[in-house]
Amino acid sequence: MTGDDGRTGRGGVPASGEVAERAGASASGKVSAGSAAGKAGAGSAAGEGAEVFVSVAERVRRSLDGSSPGERLVARTLLASYPTAGLETAARLAERAGVSAPTVVRFVARLGFAGYRAFQQALRDEIEARRASPLTLAQQLGDGVTPDSLRVSAGAIFRQRLDESFAALSDPELEAVLDLLADPARRIAMIGGRFSHILAEYLDLHLRLLRPGTRVLDPRPESLAAFSVDVGRRDVIVVFDYRRYQRDVVEFARRVHERGAKVVLFTDPWLSPASEAADLVIPVRVEAPSPFDSLVPALALVETVVAGVMARLGKEGEERLRQCEEIVGDVTVD
């Protein structure tokens, strides 16, 4: 699969997680489920003792709730100029945030890093992972793979990515997404990149059977411009954007956020720049057996969201679905 930006393909880091691990154990991004819940606000879906991947960007974003006022200033400064602000010296970052250098050091330690140097190394590795493409990533399956070994190896990799994605998922964040999408007073619009647009269409195909007021946006510039003029506080914009990130999608997310719309972002662990404008962020793993990124975990999460919205709507959703089915009629083939 080529990249969402349409210029290069999208690829995954090696299944071993070596990009993250090069920063050392304390900066690897791999933490236990209990630690992820305590330090990064991860949901309770992770099993006890399970290792999950939480990127630097996601750790910073999740730290906002439990941080001191000074640490929140550091976090917001990082997210506003991510990741470049974190590559500056601790003193310069402190100056940007209007806090002391020790506050920056305490914040970095609170994120789980052994020191500021380990934090910066993790950031550099994350930048490398964000820019990955099929031209820079290795095939996970060796040459001469047999059909049987392909089935076993690929199946194991996909199961691992699904387990990691759901273990790292924040329950409060997911609940908030479901609340927005099931609210009949909200208008729901969806958009994705060159390839992730299929996820937007897939989600809309289900939501429109359960509730009114949903649509997939026409990605042409003139159509997005016209929509942006009319957008307001009643609107929820669901954005799908995975590495490499698509400039027009990111800019659109920022624009509708400025006009008061709620932005829900589905992205990868390294976080699309659209996360700066997002009210809620749902990251999933994207690595695959081939050098091309996978939408399998993302699709599983979309299915999860559909199930959650259906449960929230209850009888009202079932009745709308029944009426839609009656109008469509029997289209099955015996």
Rank of each mutant, 00 (worst) to 15 (best):
R259T: 12
P273T: 04
A300K: 06
L301R: 05
E303Y: 08
G308T: 00
L299R: 10
A298F: 05
G308V: 02
R247G: 14
T267C: 08
A300Q: 08
S275H: 14
I282D: 08
P291T: 11
A298H: 01
F266H: 08
A277K: 02
S272R: 04
K262G: 09
G260C: 06
V296W: 11
F266S: 07
R247S: 15
A288T: 08
V286D: 08
W270C: 09
S290M: 12
S275Y: 10
F252S: 07
R285E: 15
V302R: 06
S275M: 14
Y245S: 11
H257P: 00
V250H: 09
L299C: 05
A288K: 04
K262F: 13
T304Q: 12
A311G: 07
D248C: 00
V263L: 09
A298T: 02
Y245Q: 12
P273K: 00
W270V: 14
R254M: 10
R255M: 12
D268N: 07
T304Y: 10
A307I: 01
V296M: 11
V286T: 15
I282M: 15
V296Y: 13
V306I: 02
A288C: 09
D248A: 14
E251D: 15
V281W: 02
R312V: 03
R285L: 15
D268K: 04
F252N: 07
R259F: 13
T267L: 06
L299P: 06
A288R: 02
M310T: 12
P269R: 07
P269S: 08
P269I: 05
W270K: 00
